[in-house]
Structures are given as C-alpha cells and as structure tokens.
Design a protein around this nucleic acid. Structure first.
Lengths: 117, 117
DNA sequence: CTGTATCCAACTCGATACTG
DNA sequence: CAGTATCGAGTTGGATACAG
C-alpha cells in the first residue's frame, strides 16, 4: 500500500493514472518538453482552453512538483513555466507517445497535407 | 493536417491524447499488457467501476483496433479480451509509466507496506 | 457470466466579464 | 500579460435493476 496526497494506492502506476486522469496535464508536459513557455504561449498551444482552466492545471502541476513557475518582475508581467526534474523524467514516456502515435496514424489515419510533426 | 475518425488533428500525438483523454482506456491496456483477461477479471481489477462503464470502454478500445474480443460458446458465457498488434505497441509506453511511477513514488509517496508492484 | 437500460450525481471544462 | 470570479453546459461515469 502506498500513501500519496492523503490517498491510498495499491501500486505505483495507480498514482500515475490518478495524476494524469484528465486530458490536459500530460499535454502541458508535452508542450514544455523542449523549452520553457510563457502562460500565453501555453494558452495558444492548448486552444481551445480558457485561462481559468489553464491556471488550474498549471497550479496542479506545480503542486505535484512537475513544473516550475518563474515570475519576471516587469511590466507587462511575464511568467514562465518549465519542467522540474520529475517533469523531465516524463520525457522517455513522451517520446513513446510520439512513436506510437506515428505508427498508429500511419495505419489508421489519413494525412491531409504534409505538415506532420 | 490529419484526419482520424472524422476529426481533424494538427499532429499525430494529438490523436493519442484524444484517444486516452479518459481515465480508463489506458488502465485497461495496462491490465491486458501481459495476458488476456475475462470481463469479470477486468471488472475486478478496475474497481470501483460499473459493468456499464467497462462495457463502453471495451467497445471503444475494440473500435480503435487496440483490443480483441473473443467469445467462447459455453455456459456460463466467457469473453476474453486481449491486445491487438497496435495495443501491444503501447507496451514500451506502459513500461515507461512504471519506471516513472516508481521513481516519483520513491521521492514523494510513503510506502505503507511492502507489496509494491 | 456478460452484458443492457434508465436515471442521476459529480466533475471538468468553456463562456464571459473583470482585475492588478 | 497573467491571472480571478461567476455561471453554466456537457460529458463521464456511478447506482440500480434487469436480461440472455
């Protein structure tokens, strides 16, 4: 038995599934995988999303020690988000998402034009 | 641009995030990763879950070509679910989930007894 | 055992307006 | 620019009962 954030789990992977049981947190990690991004940049990457929702998800990720929040004291304000060590550790997993997606897409999806990622 | 199931996506990984945007489908793949399981076995693995919800998720996974459904003509009925080739391709990703979870847990969670997975 | 059918509660997330 | 506040729509999934 494992205790995490006042909840109990039977296996370590249950914690992963509990953390990433929404559609947004892992996507945010995905967009931060190569470099830090500002609030506005994430906001645009994740369209359609509202500022409220993005704010909530960023706070959750920060509390989970997966991202850092850095405030620059300037006007207009600038806030940058980046991966922590434990966020960075998700990169191999992220890479596997891309590998799988490309193979799966090749088989079952139709490419409309050539701007593949 | 990519078309899949009558929806449009900008990158291949968006398809992954769209498929696995619920909390259950990837967990089902997780439990099927080593061997086929019967409906009842999945039902017990995924508690708390209702039969209705499990049925819906299994159908979705079948339509996505990620699992096979095999019916044995016997009484009482027996139905087994197993990974397809494309379900199997998720194993490296699943492995990374376990690796990450173990490291993250070691740092942030508290083990109450020794039955770790 | 393996589902279906109905009803409903909870939660996530979007729309919109406003603030420092 | 980077949020917060309020409201509400939509979807997911649980409770329960029933069927083949």
């Amino acid at each position: 038995m494992i205790e995490f954030n006042n909840k109990e789990y039977n296996s370590t992977s249950e914690i992963f599934f509990d953390i990433f049981n929404d559609k947004l947190k892992l996507m945010i990690i995905w967009y931060l995988k190569n470099n830090p991004l500002r609030f506005k940049e994430l906001f645009e990457c994740l369209q359609p999303i509202t500022k409220k929702t993005l704010t909530i998800k960023l706070k959750e990720l920060e509390q989970l020690n997966l991202i850092n929040r850095e405030v620059f004291a300037q006007v207009p304000p600038k806030v940058e988000y980046s991966l922590t060590e434990y966020g960075n550790d998700l990169k191999p997993l992220i890479d596997e998402i891309l590998i799988w997606s490309q193979k799966y897409t090749k088989k079952f999806a139709k490419t409309i034009d050539e701007d593949l990622q």
